[in-house]
Design a protein around this nucleic acid. Structure first.
Lengths: 218, 218, 218, 218
DNA sequence: TATGAATGAGGTTTCATTCAT
DNA sequence: GATGAATGAAACCTCATTCAT
């Protein structure tokens, strides 16, 4: 149920069919590191080339523009960040077969699942969050993926558990969603982006976070 | 109990004693707008100059470097973002006189207070959050202000309410703090940064958020 | 027989009649230091202003342009570097009264005299030599002063001592002049510009230099 | 025994292994001309680019900074100005085989040799002398080359001829060296830098200069 | 495929100088 | 006389991108 390390997937193939050359892989890796460290705008293609150990021209043989490079890094993150779990899982288990999983287990699975995803892809997620507000292309990608594929499923899921009494009906559906996402994402970002070096007890924090959500929405 | 509009404060004086020239004010305003819109690194000083209606050289008469300009915009936000409320208020009311205010009222005041702060200074807060991860100077400023001035008070406040039974003792103090901050900041950012154009019912959302925190930590 | 410290003279008055203000004196002093240290072109007027402790505008109240400032520093050096000794002294003593001074004493006096001049005005002389090749104005100043006022006297002086047998007639007059000047100036420049920190025994070096010239030309 | 034209050597290769591109050669040539004419600080990279017929960016592809360009022009001059003759020649002939060459011939060879060197590289030598006092990097280069490679040989050479009676023992070794260098360099600089347009009789001047040195030190 | 020289537009910053106060 | 804010041109340098090899 675990998705692959995105980084590795990225390395394997960008357009599903053709493998990327070792140089291209080096370029991607270098770009990811630099973008995360200094930001997209503050990173120069020549820095990337140097760090990747390739000639400047080589970057532009694989990516028409610098922005292309960014998009090709960020776009799989967008699709994977929300999708796999919901798209693959929800459709089949939650809605098609009608709630056969209990609320608490599902909540726990969401948190663990996203936690691991970010743990494996901290750098990529960092880049996504840094750049999304400046690049309409990414925003659109995000909207398409989230609004069309995840949001509707999520809404139905909340309604289901409001009917079962696990979530209070006093909270509007959208508010529930916002509170859950805020809490989960807030935790994960604090954990991996703001205070990665703090001495975390991950399991405890996750459990407390779940408890907080459950009680908060009850 | 409300702090001033930061933007206006910035305009009035930077170092308390000497007013800034009209041109300097124009520069600050233009820089703030551009930094928020395109990001610091992607904004050129010539754009700022043009938007401010001054010669490019004028910027550098007032700010030694472009980064200086950023710091002088962001640094008051850092000091004001967390401080006034806690520093001024907490010390006097909560700790000196010993909890004469009830938990719910205080929670509500925090949320409303920070909400209004960001509402008035959305642009500045946006810039701060965008840039903090790339500029050690800002990080340090933030650490100094938060860790030294806010954090200790906050911890004592949580312990007080854990003793009074408002907050469950099952949650470690730091976890409580993280959950509250995450929820409040997450809400405010969603409200003003991610989805500013959504048709919000602010009062309701605030009340639900408070309810969520209260129940979540009980 | 000693000329004044040029620096002090400069300070007293630039155009003979009106004293310069303390600010102007500060500017001159600062400019001299900076020009010597970094060169004219590499010194900015704002650096000078800062070092002089005056506002940038103040410099231009006293000197129309930056080059004006240079000229007003360098021009008294040009006039004094060669002139006083020869003009004042030669005319009267050597040519009017006909050689009443012996060759060796005169040679010694020239060397000591110029040595002291440079010793007192090292910085100014340095600036003159550095800048003369880039500024036609200075070159002309130099030509006017040297060619018209010093050179003819010098030539006559050499001829006098060639007739008296002190200087060999095998050397063309111009060559004699070049050899003497080269030796004297070369010594002084080595002493004060190239190796000012070497542990010099000035008196010995001067005496040996004179001996070298005397024997070399005999 | 004649060294190559430095200019041409510079053009051929800077780091011995890789040839420089035609554009790079153009840049060097243009920079040399401009630096000699206006001085390093007063020459702009855009002027150099224009004169070289390349884009300004091209300069910085080959030389990281403007100063780099200066150093790469000046540094071969420093190494060649003093070295080849002494290092190659002295070691073998004067010290290894013990004085088999007579004083007068050696003196003559030094003067002719350096004369020709400067004759072929006037511009480069001019730049070196103009800039050395402002650039510690060049000073160090010079010190390293002169003090370590030339000076010791020279000292031994003087002592040899003091023993043979060609040079008087009344002069301290360092003073002899200073007088010779001053006279030779002074002549050459007068010839090529100060008064290049005077109608020189080179052979006569050289011979007289040698005679002056010989007699002066005897 | 990969290179790296070349580009020219544009980046930040400095400069000498002016002028209202 | 002195200031220092303001300027705009030009300084050095970096950039993303192209193209001949």
């Amino acid at each position: 149920m675990n998705e692959q390390d995105l980084l590795q997937e990225l390395m394997k193939a960008s357009e599903e069919d053709k493998d990327l050359t070792p140089k291209q892989a080096k370029i991607l890796q270098a770009a990811i590191e630099m973008f995360a460290e200094k930001g997209y705008a503050a990173t120069s293609t020549s820095e990337i080339a140097k760090k990747a150990g390739v000639a400047e021209g080589t970057i532009f043989r694989h990516y028409k523009t610098k922005k292309d490079l960014l998009i090709s890094i960020v776009s799989p993150v967008v699709t994977r960040f929300a999708i796999p779990f919901f798209a693959d899982r929800f459709v089949k288990e939650v809605f098609e077969k009608e709630t056969n999983e209990n609320y608490d287990d599902l909540l726990r699975e969401i948190v663990y699942n996203r936690f691991e995803f970010v743990q494996k892809n901290t750098t990529l997620v960092k880049i996504l969050f840094q750049e999304i507000s400046f690049h309409p292309e990414i925003q659109q990608l995000f909207a398409e993926n989230f609004l069309e594929k995840v949001y509707p499923h999520f809404i139905k899921w909340v309604e289901t558990y409001q009917r079962s009494g696990d979530i209070s009906k006093d909270f509007p559906v959208n508010t529930v969603l916002r509170l859950i996402m805020t809490t989960v994402i807030g935790f994960i970002i604090t954990r991996f982006v703001f205070l990665p070096h703090y001495d975390w007890n991950d399991e405890m924090e996750i459990e407390k976070t779940i408890e907080y959500i459950r009680k908060g929405l009850s």
